[in-house]
Design a protein around this nucleic acid. Sequence first.
DNA 1: GTAGCCTTGAAA
DNA 2: TTTCAAGGCTAC
Length: 443
Amino acid sequence: MESRQALCLKELCPVCGDQVSGYHYGLLTCESCKGFFKRTVQNNKQYVCAEQQECTIDRGQRKRCPSCRFLKCLHVGMRLEAVRADRKRGGRNKFGPMYKRDRALKQQREALIQDGGFRLDSGSSTHHRNLTFTTGFHPLPMIPSTSLPTAQPPHLCSLLPSTQYQCTSFSNWKSQHSNNGSPGPREGKSPSSRIHSFSPPAPSMPQLVMEFLRCDPDELQLQSKISARILQEEENGTPNTFSLMCVMADQTLFSIVEWARTSIFFKQLKVDDQMKLLHSCWSDLLLLDTVCRNVLQGRENSLLLVTGQEMELSYVASHAGLTLASLVQRGQDLVEKLHILKVDRQEFACIKFLVLFNPDVKQLEDPRFVESVHEQAESSLLEYTLSTSSHLIGRFAHLLLCLSEIRSLSTLAEDYLYCKHLSGGVPCNNLLIEMLHAKRSCA
DNA sequence: GTAGCCTTGAAA
DNA sequence: TTTCAAGGCTAC
């Protein structure tokens, strides 16, 4: 067995291809990209690319364009939230278990390559396509977990404690998140300044995209947690595949509520409004979560689940009913469209906020706030999209079209689930069923 | 501003 | 006590 260090040092930095020096801000990188990422985030740097945002970042040219270098850092999965706001030295952060698991996966792969000659992509296991083995739908290997979700989940209202409510304004947010209040180099020409008619000044858009990204949950932690729960279900009996999928959806829904509850802007809303928004878009977010995972990490002709398992589409076609199989196929078509559009984590982070802050939700206490956040998210997405792919005319419009496809698909999925629920085919007493009922009673 | 090396300190 | 991923320092 190779030493931990030897395993790490064999890899190349996913940003510039230099020698990796260890895990830094979420994944294995070299020392210079680690330092660059730290300086950029700590000093709130705003770079502008002099070209078309397509500069090559390699060891020899990494100094040429900090803008493209930073975008590449984010694209490969470096985590903004790993840079400490308090600048405290030493110790470990919440990524410790993630690094440990990533190492274990790498060792596992290394062993498989040596034993059986599997061909696998190199690089960090966290954020690339073509990553996992196709397993069909087998029971999961044991994954230790210290905090298993409870068998009887609490209701949504108890997941959104009213003590969380703090009313801070946009201007407070801006002052907290900018160094001196003066606009960054990109702010002056931000499309948002043309779009916004609402009074609060927009924070610099790249920064808002960063804030959205910061809110993203840790995928590996989620994977371990839900895998452990599935294992628990399997040990408790032998539920069928559909029931296990419902448990997965239910647990994912938990993580979505937790994500929303702790997210920027959303935590400023009153609990009533929070519940109304979540009741309205839970299935969109659930679908978006799966779509996002499959666009960023999935493989063709298979469905990547939140547990990291892959299910062959041919298996779905032969084992699921006609309705479910066609829903999955439509979802997969959407994944393919988004994959062709090369939608990245940043864009998905914006889209999630667009979906969550739906200004069409009725009887909100603070509709103007919801509307303004929706506009901010849309402007962020527009600016980011233009800055990364200005040569692709209409890409933003394509993204919005995909969003409406997500909405129509999630409505169909909800109807399907409701029918299955009425016929007793869905496990009861969970968040999934609560949401299903809540939305129907609102409609 | 960059990047290599050093120091720190919580978790294992 | 050891590990190792944070932040800091400094020559370039």
